[in-house]
């Protein structure tokens, strides 16, 4: 159930317009991503598949997928061979991009409100936002942004106090204990490999 909330929230956050002017580069990043997502979604001249490709590109550009992927397998990273590591990074990135870009369609008039930006003790910036929905109470979404080599990237989303990265880590640990990292890779590939709508 929690997973669905994350997916829904991420979709909403990608598909936001009219965010308040923000102060720092982290807030700007979230706003820029929203603007780009809106542009991609409103381009009715492009086939749906192309629009989803553009959304995938946005995720690839603004999220530090490799860092999130490594965090999500925790201590198992070091035990993996270099080939397993690169296969896993690819499978994880494909999984996140396909899953979230495909779900953007759920967008229905939500807006994002920037609440605050604050630095953490680890040097990251937490961008606190609220997703305002036409129906239902607002959802609290925090974006953890890390600046590495001068470029801010999203490394986690916290929805209503629950971290996506931590949730993935717990789920993946269970899968790895059962079938090893190869099992996790296959599961991620299976999730991504499902086909979309057909004419």
């Amino acid at each position: 159930m929690r997973a669905y909330v994350f997916q829904a929230a991420l979709c909403l956050c990608l598909a936001l317009g009219g965010m308040a002017a923000s102060a720092g580069p982290a807030g700007d990043l979230i706003r820029q991503m929203s603007d780009e997502a809106i542009a991609a979604l409103s381009d009715g001249g492009q086939p749906l598949v192309q629009r989803e490709k553009r959304l995938q590109g946005l995720l690839d550009t603004h999220f530090d997928l490799e860092r999130i992927a490594r965090f999500a397998v925790g201590r198992y990273w070091r035990a993996a061979t270099p080939e397993q590591q690169s296969d896993y990074i690819k499978a994880f990135s494909d999984y996140i991009m396909a899953r979230y870009a495909r779900r953007i369609g759920g967008y229905s008039g939500e807006t994002l409100e920037l609440v605050s930006e604050r630095p953490t003790e680890t040097g990251d910036v937490l961008v606190e936002t609220r997703i305002l929905r036409p129906a239902g109470p607002p959802i609290a979404a925090e974006w953890r942004v890390r600046t590495d080599g001068g470029r801010p990237l999203i490394i986690d989303i916290v929805i209503e106090g629950m971290s996506m990265a931590l949730a993935k880590r717990a789920a993946f640990a269970a899968l790895i204990r059962q079938n090893g990292i190869d099992g996790l890779i296959l599961v991620l590939q299976a999730d991504t490999g499902r086909k979309g709508a057909r004419p």
Partner: peptide, 14 residues
Amino acid sequence: NLGVLYQEGKGVAV
């Protein structure tokens, strides 16, 4: 295709 809509949460709740 309806299965796809439910899986992806398009036009219906996931």
